[in-house]
Write a protein that binds this DNA or RNA. Structure first.
Ligand code: FES
Ligand code: FES
Lengths: 144, 144
DNA sequence: TCTATTCTAAACTGAATTACTCAACTATTA
DNA sequence: TAATAGTTGAGTAATTCAGTTTAGAATAGA
């Protein structure tokens, strides 16, 4: 039940990009240095965030990355789903990537105790992460 | 952010053992058959639960497993921690297996936004799973 | 006691995932 | 056109996952 390093690094990188929002581009090496993230690894994370539509980038001499949307329109839930997949602790309770249980004997009876409990767990997690934006998140770190 | 098959099978096996609580021993092949769990895999799960003090067993001709404690004294949180380790989504917010973050730049400043949010997530999960007992759990399945 | 039954313990395996690293490439700008 | 910076894809060592195999030890009943 852990989030991957990818998710953690993504959140830390986005903390820097949020602080920089509206200003100049931020380069990967700068993020890597400030957050102690291995630069090549950070790169694939930034790429994933870019491909998911959260970041823009520019190459060449004063290139770098920037947030493409305002920080209060990006939730931690979105970010974590990009890097780690669904938040649900079991496939049959995922709302974004539902998968029915093939071997669960309760699945046929219409009600499964595991599904019930885990549904509650998934909602509790999503409730927090889908309502927490990068602005809330960075607000704690970069309060002026 | 998924629970392993081990945890899922453990919960399903315990559902059977809870229904059987106070009666005769239940054999692994019976559990395996009723819950569609590969028997050899189930075995290591039952062993782990036994070593963790949740089950008793007897070998030989009418041997089998049984719950060693009443179902309302075993929580889903306990079970999942045995098979999957801590519930916390990141080491630095685990109460049962805390590990400090070595590379987080906020760890020195006394307050880390990731730790704050993830602490909330871990509490939300634990709040559900540590207050949900096998009796509650099985009650949904074996209501007479 | 012999034997079938059932749990115990540990090692083993193939596939997948994690956390990175490397190398070659393309775009930008001074 | 040289230096800078992002892009893409492949590679890799270590670990985890989901299970299988094998050999053994306890128990009950004949
Ligand atoms: S239906 Fe998914 S665990 Fe029962
Ligand atoms: S202290 Fe653990 S993530 Fe910052």
């Amino acid at each position: 039940m852990k989030f991957s390093k990818k998710s953690e690094y993504a959140l830390r990188a986005l903390l820097e990009l949020t602080a920089q929002y509206g200003r100049a581009l931020l380069q990967r090496h700068e993020i890597a240095k400030r957050q102690h993230i291995p630069i090549e690894f950070l790169e694939q994370i930034l790429l994933a965030l870019k491909n998911a539509g959260l970041l823009a980038s520019r190459r060449g001499v004063s290139g770098g990355y920037s947030l493409i949307k305002p920080p209060d329109e990006i939730t931690l839930g979105q970010v974590i789903r990009i890097l780690d997949g669904p938040l649900a602790p079991i496939g049959c309770v995922s709302k974004t990537a539902y998968q029915k249980c093939s071997d669960c004997p309760y699945v046929k009876k219409g009600s499964c105790p595991i599904q019930d409990v885990m549904g509650g767990v998934r909602n509790a997690i999503a409730e927090i992460l889908d309502n927490y934006t990068l602005r809330d998140f960075a607000g704690q770190a970069t309060r002026q």
